[in-house]
Amino acid sequence: MPPPTARGAALFLLISSAAFAFSGPLARAARPVHPLVIAFGRVALAALILGVLNAGAIRRTLPTLSTRQRAIVLGAGSLLAAHFALFLWGLDRTSLPAALSLVALEPLSIVLWAWALFRIRPSRPEQLGLLLATLGALLVGRGGDAGEHHLEGDLLVLGAVILYGAYLAAARGIRDALPAHTYAAVVYGSAAFALALVLPFAPGALATASPLPAHGAVYIILLALIPTLLGHTAVQWASRHMPPTLVALVSPGETLGGIALGIVWFGTIPTLTESLGGLLILSGTLVALFRSSPPATPAGEPLSSTP
């Protein structure tokens, strides 16, 4: 895989980080729509658009998948559905800066899953990064129950971060069998199906969708178009053409951009504890990314792809 040009890498990071930075603020602005309704609407609309645009490729490639590969796609979609549900539910129950600070742990979650499932031992820089980021997460958690910041929401976001690493681990190898856009369409469709099964059992969820507030519908559409289609498409393409370490920088970019948008849009200025914890998390993530040796993964397989 040839190295990307400096201009191409900078453009990718700018576009994808900016797109993902809108995820948290847009979901916050969609209140009081239930987080599971937001998650379902986001992936269902993205799946519909990608499905229409890639209908021919889907019809050609899906029949060629083995039973195991189809099970992996469905499993990846279910994990992604749980990731979105936990993140949006956690975001609804904690402060925006705290939730977005914890999102920066996603690349380190991938490192841990690679270690647990594939015995890819973290390098020393990655171990140092994990230590710094863990200390940062603990510090962010100490700021719970102050204003909008609650530990319950922090834990839900952490669960989403953990499941994100599991989602990428479950998808290991399947991306060689499907083109990037086709894979995204099918996985988002599987995620929407999983969320549709859960929605009727989530207390109060359907009540916020009958009828769906106009502002909520607008923000769900924007969530599907900006962080999902634009951001996800950019990362899917970059995962096949750029080093995984570069792709992983989208997560800390999302954190910084989302917090900045939150300050401008909602006036949600991080507390001192949230700021210090977020800086530790970002420092740990960047130490692990910049000082790591290239991971031993199959060609074309990304280590990070923030949804």
Rank of each mutant, 00 (worst) to 15 (best):
69 Q>F: 08
74 L>R: 05
176 D>F: 08
160 A>F: 05
193 F>A: 11
200 P>I: 12
149 H>L: 07
69 Q>Y: 02
166 A>W: 02
134 T>V: 15
152 E>I: 12
207 A>M: 09
205 A>N: 11
187 V>D: 03
143 G>T: 14
196 A>V: 15
179 P>W: 04
122 P>H: 05
151 L>A: 00
91 L>I: 13
155 L>A: 07
154 D>P: 12
92 D>V: 15
140 V>F: 00
204 G>D: 07
190 S>N: 03
164 Y>K: 11
78 S>L: 10
73 V>E: 03
99 A>V: 13
136 G>H: 02
89 W>Q: 13
196 A>S: 06
167 Y>M: 08
159 G>C: 08
93 R>D: 00
189 G>R: 09
201 F>R: 10
174 I>T: 05
133 A>F: 07
184 A>L: 08
122 P>Y: 04
163 L>D: 02
100 L>P: 14
69 Q>L: 10
135 L>E: 14
203 P>I: 08
149 H>N: 11
187 V>C: 01
163 L>Y: 04
95 S>I: 10
89 W>R: 10
167 Y>C: 06
92 D>L: 08
145 D>L: 04
142 R>D: 09
188 Y>F: 06
188 Y>N: 03
165 G>L: 03
81 A>E: 06
163 L>G: 11
132 L>H: 03
119 R>G: 11
87 F>M: 06
92 D>P: 14
138 L>T: 14
119 R>D: 13
91 L>P: 14
129 G>C: 09
121 R>H: 09
89 W>P: 15
194 A>M: 04
171 A>H: 01
89 W>S: 12
107 P>D: 00
206 L>G: 00
119 R>T: 14
114 A>C: 13
137 A>V: 12
91 L>H: 07
194 A>H: 03
78 S>V: 14
79 L>A: 03
123 S>G: 15
205 A>L: 10
149 H>S: 09
73 V>D: 08
129 G>I: 10
155 L>T: 14
127 Q>N: 12
139 L>P: 14
135 L>C: 11
77 G>W: 05
193 F>V: 10
171 A>L: 06
116 A>V: 15
163 L>C: 10
72 I>G: 00
168 L>R: 07
207 A>V: 09
164 Y>F: 13
155 L>E: 07
96 L>S: 02
193 F>N: 06
118 F>T: 08
206 L>K: 03
85 A>S: 09
102 L>M: 03
144 G>N: 04
148 E>P: 14
93 R>F: 05
207 A>Q: 05
141 G>I: 13
132 L>F: 15
194 A>K: 06
96 L>V: 10
158 L>Y: 04
196 A>R: 04
142 R>Q: 09
136 G>Y: 01
109 S>V: 13
185 A>D: 07
78 S>Q: 04
147 G>V: 13
197 L>E: 04
199 L>M: 10
68 R>F: 08
87 F>A: 05
94 T>S: 01
128 L>E: 10
77 G>H: 00
106 E>I: 13
73 V>T: 12
113 W>A: 02
200 P>W: 01
197 L>W: 08
159 G>E: 09
92 D>S: 08
196 A>T: 15
154 D>N: 06
145 D>R: 01
92 D>K: 05
97 P>I: 09
134 T>L: 02
203 P>M: 05
105 L>G: 02
86 L>M: 10
192 A>H: 02
181 H>N: 13
85 A>I: 14
94 T>K: 01
111 V>E: 02
